[in-house]
Each structure stands twice: as structure tokens, then as C-alpha cells.
Amino acid sequence: MDTQVARERLLELRRELQETIEGVTSRMENGVTADLPTGGHDFGDEGAHEQQAAEQEGLLDGARRRLQSVEDALKRIEDGTYGVSVVSGKPIPDERLEARPDAVTLADEEL
């Protein structure tokens, strides 16, 4: 994949992830829960709120990890190592980079 195209895709992905992180963080800080009933509290309501809070935390954690992966990919572009597996040193196929521009390994490799 052309590094300029990769850079543009990564920058767009970074922007989207930052927006997601900001939105989730704002909702969590404000105690906003989507579409949960208000009014009387029972164990079911509390459980639903706790479950949604855990889901929001999971979403936030995943977005932060992916953002770090995108930042690392942008650094690899600058270093001239973008598109090369960190495991084997082999080129990562363009198809994989198009699907996941922050990929660091071949599809069959594990870190």
C-alpha cells in the first residue's frame, strides 16, 4: 500500500477513534446511560446500569488500544518500517493493510 494513502487512512481512523473516545468519556463522566428506564430502582435496574457501564468501559478501552495502534503505525510510516511484519520481517500484503491499515503482522502470525 502506498504510504501516503496509508497515512491518510490512518489519520482518518485516528480522528474517528478520538471522537469515539471523547463521546464515550463524556457520557461516562455525565452518568448518561442510553435508553434505560428512570424512576424506581430495583436490582434489575442496577444490574442494567452496571452492565452498560462495563460495556462503555470496554468500548473505551478498545478504542484507546486501537488509537495507540494507529499512532504506532503512523510512526512506522515515518521510520520507513510501515508494511513490514514485526514478527517475520516479511512484507504485509496490501489486502491486509487495506483492511487493517495499522496491522503489524501477517494474518497467520502471532505476537
Rank of each mutant, 00 (worst) to 15 (best):
G62M: 12
A54D: 11
T20A: 15
Q4D: 05
V70E: 07
E16I: 07
P37R: 15
A53I: 11
T105P: 03
N30V: 09
L97Y: 01
Q68D: 14
R66S: 10
E109K: 07
R96C: 03
R9T: 00
R76S: 01
A6N: 01
N30F: 12
R66C: 06
T33A: 07
V86W: 07
L67K: 09
H49G: 06
G47P: 05
N30R: 14
I21Y: 03
E57D: 13
Q18C: 01
K90P: 08
V24A: 09
Q18H: 05
D79P: 06
D94T: 05
G47C: 05
T25E: 14
A54Q: 13
E16H: 09
V24E: 13
D94E: 14
T3L: 00
D102I: 01
P101V: 02
L10Y: 00
H41N: 11
E95V: 09
T3C: 01
R14P: 03
I77N: 00
L59I: 13
Q51R: 13
P93R: 04
K75S: 05
N30P: 06
A107I: 15
T20D: 13
R96D: 05
E109H: 04
K75C: 01
E50M: 11
G44H: 15
D45S: 15
Q4K: 04
A63Y: 08
S69E: 11
I77G: 00
V84E: 09
V104S: 12
L11V: 03
V70F: 08
G40P: 13
E71Y: 07
S69F: 05
G40E: 15
